[in-house]
Design a protein around this nucleic acid. Structure first.
Lengths: 197, 197
DNA sequence: ACAATAATAGGACGATTATCCAATCCGGTA
DNA sequence: TACCGGATTGGATAATCGTCCTATTATTGT
């Protein structure tokens, strides 16, 4: 039988293993940081043997890139879904806020996956941070498009970055103090801000 | 001669060395992160020999605690200075903002020293993050006192945390995008917010 | 000047790190 | 059935990590 179409086919054994590695790495990088996650950690979490992982990824950096790509795909799908679920620009922006409150448990425990990753990589690994920055770009552009829909022109991107920054700040403080109430209170303020735009 | 009063005396040789270690570690932890800084890095930056540093600090965690203490002392002195320089609560709050804009170069390059440290330690090292959280407490309490001066009651602490979070968010985004203009623009907005309180 | 203490010098430790490699296995194709 | 390439196994690598010793040399208070 000829090889099935990649987009619809069930994943082959190797593709499953590869996806499993990326899933485990994504979780570990989030919970323990990139540097705080060792190759051994990923191998053990994936239930593999040491050498096997090198069949799929040559370096740890390659795994990070795959994790970033997976994040991009998942968040991209989210954004697309919000656009289909809500037609009003403000409703779409509120969906962004709902994601934050909906993930308050993880946010309070581990911080923002995107923000903490960029903060860590921005210290020493400029090359990797540039790749991770794409995650911010994704949200920035999507949010800016919503502000454009609301009639904003040149300041749409500034508003998007303002909103992103507010969200990041909330995540940092909520994480530092493990405070869900603060997260709820601050996102409620942000909701008022959105409705006023 | 009796030992000089510690607070006024010139530092002894050992105290100088110790202070030098803390200074180097403070800079390295900021620029490369806690995990990204090795014992060897600190030793080399301090111009010491491997074993010698253990005469001053038993573990790397001890060094971190000393770095946090130094941060606390320095920022505490800053806060005290602002209280002496400005008598109006809002002027004191604006001094906080001036610190941010005054340090824009480092902030854009390495992020907020307090925020990034807490974010990193919050991932895996809860015990250490609790110590680092004291830096946030310092600012939170000081800012809350200023809002109390402005006539706010129960919400003084919430306002302080809001301001802290806004500042953190600005630092994160400005760092991710290496964007000084964004930092200026956002702090200007924060200035308007302060003046409206 | 002397005894006690502090500081320096330099090597060594086991554990862990990312990375790599050869040998074996297995499933689909010829 | 024989075969071939991807997948698995399991160990080995050199480098680096934080930590710890033991001498030897300065500095200190008396």
């Amino acid at each position: 039988m000829a090889r099935q179409d990649k987009s619809t086919a069930a994943l082959s054994k190797g593709e499953q293993t590869r996806a499993g590695i990326v899933d485990c790495a994504k979780r570990l990088f989030y919970e323990h940081g990139y540097d705080g996650t060792s190759f051994t950690d990923i191998v053990e979490a994936s239930g593999l043997y040491r050498g096997n992982i090198y069949h799929y990824f040559k370096t740890k950096d390659d795994i990070l890139q795959a994790v970033i790509d997976q994040h991009l795909a998942e968040f991209g799908a989210l954004l697309e879904m919000w656009e289909q679920q809500h037609k009003e620009p403000k409703a779409r922006l509120l969906a962004f806020l709902n994601m934050i409150t909906g993930r308050k448990l993880e946010l309070v425990q581990y911080g923002c996956p995107i923000g903490s990753l960029n903060t860590e990589l921005g210290k020493d690994r400029r090359d990797l941070q540039e790749a991770a920055r794409a995650l911010f770009d994704l949200f920035r552009d999507w949010l800016a498009a919503r502000f454009t829909e609301l009639g904003h022109g040149d300041d749409a991107e500034s508003l998007a970055l303002h909103l992103l920054g507010r969200a990041q700040g909330i995540a940092v403080i909520a994480h530092v103090y493990h405070d869900q109430k603060l997260l709820k209170r601050e996102t409620a303020q942000l909701q008022s801000w959105i409705e006023a735009q």
